[in-house]
Nucleic acid binder design. Structure first.
Length: 879
DNA sequence: CGATCCCGCCACATT
DNA sequence: AATGTGGCGGGATCG
């Protein structure tokens, strides 16, 4: 496109020409581009960066003109358009600013020329990415609008998104302060954490939600949901409690939406988020409804946001190929890891961020975030120091922090997710053709590997021995039924449970696997410094994300050193509760308010607790068996084969390029496996957090089974109502530690297998998968057991991406290719075999649970679930 | 024809 | 009430 523009535009119509350059950048290299200010450069006058003064000067000068121009613009436009290429006239106006530009500036602005993305680039070009702390640059909306020749409205669109990332902050009426990217990493980190929490928990929550749904379904969801969430999450800016609330609800949209959108990326293992999914997730209220119109509007907004993010070089557009076809999606190409805040402000140090969660301290329902933040910092404004001084103060009038709301929010979110899932499911069921995976993180088309349909058979589902686990069942019965009875039926099988196994598997058609957690959790933990230990802890925590949260909240980092211990007890307790747990699920709501669970003080956490319990239950059962169950199914050999092909080949693969890359990436990121519902499985969704396993496992094994559970399988029916969720968080922690380094993910499993719960097993699989993938190109990182890997799959991924960056990460090529050839793509494994399975197991060996393996073996006979397959594959590498 | 998303009306918030 | 903000979605343009 850009190219086009150039050819055309450049020559003729200069107006945009400046932009033109930009456009190029943008188009061509979104990743990096943005920062550098291309645009103005030419201009004689100002420099974009330094020139505050100049700029101002210019602006002031220009603005009037510009303004006129805008006004006139209408007039012009027509003209321009008509003339398009030729009209020099327009130049005049433009000229003002860009003398250089030329004459033709205006000519016809094609739509692209006027695109928000381009506009954003121009906007960004005006300011230094990393302004000196001292100078704060203030941005006058009018001025900028006039300079850029657009209506103010458009500037708002840009600024709102930038504000959500803290690149700017509103100082006053028409004034914004430019902060640049100094805090970006921090912000992202915060968002990631928040995202994990929120979404992660949500995921976990889902159970509760289900319950809630029952009640709320009808009513509440909507009510509560709305704003509060936003704030909590978003408010980043106002550290204080004040929260933006003041801001009025309105802020909800773009800003919040933007943050949420970013969170999805950060939480996503694949780093790819499809628009529709994002839209659905972001539509809080109506879960099910999802009016079309609303959805449509949401998507529109997402495009706006995506344009800005693209200009920032944080995401790029890609297409995900799913069963149905390609879907527009965006891939995160920004930083994935946020080690300390990388950049941070110049001045400030630490800072905390503003994330959303913080405020809620009290309730902190989710929020772990809060906890994390605490650590980092003070509540104060995160940026506090920002260059701009007062800038950030926001309007906040009063904060309302509705904690409760948050909970509600969660609920609402959960609901949404559930709704989304449900819808999809329904759709799928109804329209087989349609079936789309709900998965949040669908596998990117690119990565072929991503999606795989699992044969139902695959999971024989096993429930954990813990009958109690039932949660699903129970829950399902309760909550689910109402909403999704039909699906439920599948459950009929109630899923077969396997004793021991922690999981529930329902035979349903499609499976989705989502991996939520990011390592991020770890990050939070990081505080603790205890590096390793911390990690472990994290892991443990991770295992029980929510729980962890709570815990954290309660005691912060428990003992890093002996985190486990703490946890254990907790775990036990939990377990105790667990018994109830299943029920608890039903109970859920309370959790919110009442932390009854022993520990958690924070009501907010409660949910987590539940989860934990839940997990525990699952876990407790028997790991080993679980393993069997899960792995066992060697479903379709075919699939396996496919996998194998894909994977294995991955390295070898011809597609290597793209495919391999992705695979590689994925492996790293084992976070989620998304399985599309293919034919059979359409009904089910699975979420796995790749990460989880490791840490969780260990813990779990020892005592907290719950933790271990990485995956939850829910019957489609249940899903219908809710999406499955696994707390991703869990995984993450582990990863770091990991020993297993070679693959955190893998490790997870293994360890898990050994001990812990079966669940882990699953997880492991996922993890495994990734590894396997890794083989490919970039992959290496993992295998080697690089620490990085451990840290977080995600990170790893990111790393990979980074490293690979261009190639892999970018993967454009790859992506494209894949897209094109989805079918051909590797996804399908073919040749996988039991042998591998074995191997896989072996890998885990490190973990050492023979048992699990054995089981596997036994299972092998069965079909292996796709998951397993993956595992297998991955596993191969490990050894 | 579906994907994008510009444009600007208009409601709500702030001054 | 004026002006700032920004939700929202029609409908144009792109691919």
């Amino acid at each position: 496109e850009n190219i086009f523009d150039r050819s055309r535009m450049a020559p003729k119509t200069p107006i945009k020409n400046e932009p033109v350059d930009l456009s190029k950048q943008k188009g061509c290299t979104p990743e990096r581009n943005p920062i550098t200010p291309v645009k103005l450069v030419d201009r004689p006058q100002p420099d974009p960066w330094t020139p505050t003064a100049n700029l101002k000067m210019l602006v002031s000068a220009a603005s009037p003109d510009m303004r006129d121009r805008e006004k006139k613009k209408e007039l012009f436009r027509p003209i321009e358009n008509s003339e398009q290429s030729d009209t020099p006239e327009s130049l005049q106006y433009d000229m003002v600013d860009d003398s250089t530009v030329d004459e033709f500036e205006k000519q016809r602005p094609s739509r692209k020329q006027k695109s928000l993305g381009l506009l954003c680039q121009k906007f960004l070009a005006r300011y230094p990415s990393y302004p000196l702390s001292t100078e704060k640059t203030t941005i006058s909306l009018d001025e900028v609008a006039s300079i850029l020749g657009v209506e103010r409205r458009r500037i708002y669109d840009i600024v709102n998104v930038l504000e959500s990332l803290h690149l700017v902050s509103r100082v006053a009426k028409n004034q914004y302060c430019w902060h640049g990217r100094h805090n970006l990493s921090q912000t992202l980190k915060t968002l990631q954490e928040a995202g994990e929490l929120q979404y992660g928990e949500l995921m976990t929550f889902f159970q509760h939600k289900e319950q809630d749904l029952e009640y709320k379904f009808g009513e509440r969801k909507k009510e509560t949901i709305p704003d509060s969430q936003d704030r909590s999450l978003l408010d980043f800016s106002e550290p204080d409690c004040t929260s933006a609330s003041a801001n009025s609800r309105k802020d909800k949209s773009l800003r919040i939406m933007s943050q949420k959108f970013v969170m999805l990326f950060l939480v996503s293992k694949t780093k790819i988020v499809t628009l529709d999914i994002a839209a659905k997730i972001l539509i809080e209220e109506t879960q099910d409804t999802v009016d079309h119109s609303k959805f449509k509007t949401k998507v529109r907004r997402l495009y706006d946001i995506a344009n800005v993010l693209t200009s920032l070089g944080l995401i790029k557009k890609v297409h995900v190929t799913e069963e149905r076809g390609r879907k527009p999606a965006f891939k995160w190409i920004g930083p994935v890891e946020f080690p300390g805040k990388t950049d941070e402000l110049r001045g400030h140090s630490p800072t905390s961020d503003p994330l959303p969660g913080t405020q809620r301290g009290p309730c902190a329902p989710y929020q772990i975030c809060a906890a994390g933040k605490q650590r980092f910092t003070r509540h104060a404004s995160f940026n506090g120091a920002q260059p701009c001084e007062g800038t950030r103060r926001k309007v906040s009038s009063e904060p309302n922090s509705p904690r409760e709301e948050r909970q509600d929010e969660y609920c609402s979110k959960m609901i949404n997710l559930a709704a989304v899932c449900r819808q999809k499911i329904e759709e799928d069921t109804r329209n087989p053709s349609i079936t789309s995976p709900l998965s949040l993180l669908p596998v990117p088309g690119d990565s072929d590997f991503c999606v795989n349909p699992l044969p139902q058979a695959v999971f024989p589902v096993v429930q954990a021995d813990v009958p109690s686990l039932s949660l699903p069942n129970g829950i399902s019965s309760q909550a689910l039924h109402p909403s999704t009875p039909a699906a439920s039926k599948t459950e009929n099988g109630k899923p077969t449970l396997l004793p021991n196994q922690p999981f529930l598997c329902f035979p349903s058609s499609s499976l989705f696997m989502l991996c939520g957690g990011l390592q991020e959790n770890n990050l939070r933990e990081t505080l603790p410094t205890a590096g390793d230990v911390g990690n472990r802890r994290a892991e443990a925590q991770a295992a029980v994300p929510s729980a962890a949260c709570q815990k954290r909240g309660s005691h912060k980092c428990a003992s890093l050193s002996a985190p486990v211990d703490d946890e254990e007890p907790a775990a036990k307790k939990q377990t105790m509760e667990q018994s109830a747990v299943p029920l608890s699920l039903a109970v859920p709501k309370k959790p919110f308010e009442s932390p009854k669970a022993e520990s958690t003080p924070g009501s907010g956490c409660t949910s987590a607790e539940h989860l934990e319990a839940f997990h525990l239950d699952l876990a407790s059962p028997a790991a080993p068996e679980a393993a069997d169950s899960e792995p066992t199914k060697p479903l379709d050999s075919q699939e396996q084969e496919k996998w194998s092909q894909n994977k294995d080949p991955g390295e070898p693969s011809p597609g290597r390029e793209h495919i391999s890359k992705e695979n590689a990436n994925q492996p790293f990121l084992p976070q989620y496996l998304y399985v599309q519902p293919t034919a059979g499985l359409s009904s089910f969704n699975f979420l796995f957090s790749a990460n989880q396993a490791p840490g969780a496992i260990s813990l779990a094994a020892s005592q907290l089974p719950s933790l271990s559970i990485p995956c939850v399988m829910v019957p489609s029916a249940a899903l219908a109502s809710f999406p499955l969720v696994c707390s991703p968080t869990i995984t993450s922690p582990l990863s770091p530690v990991p020993d297993g380094s070679f693959s955190a993910a893998t490790s997870m499993n293994f360890s898990m297998s050994g001990l812990a719960s079966t669940t882990p097993v699953f997880i492991g699989t996922t993890a495994v998968v990734t590894p396997k993938v890794s083989p490919t190109p970039s992959v290496d990182p993992q295998q080697p057991a690089h620490p990085t890997l451990h840290l977080s799959p995600v990170l790893a991924r990111s790393c990979g991406a980074v490293k690979l960056d261009s190639p892999v990460c970018m993967g454009h090529p790859v992506t494209l290719l894949k897209l094109q050839q989805p079918s051909s793509t590797p996804l399908t494994p073919k040749s996988i075999r039991p042998a591998r399975h074995e191997a896989f197991f072996k890998t885990p060996g490190s973990l050492g649970d023979p048992v699990a393996w054995k089981k596997n073996e036994g299972n092998q006979t069965r079909n292996v679930s796709s998951v397993q397959r993956r595992l297998e594959i991955s596993s191969t590498s490990p050894d």
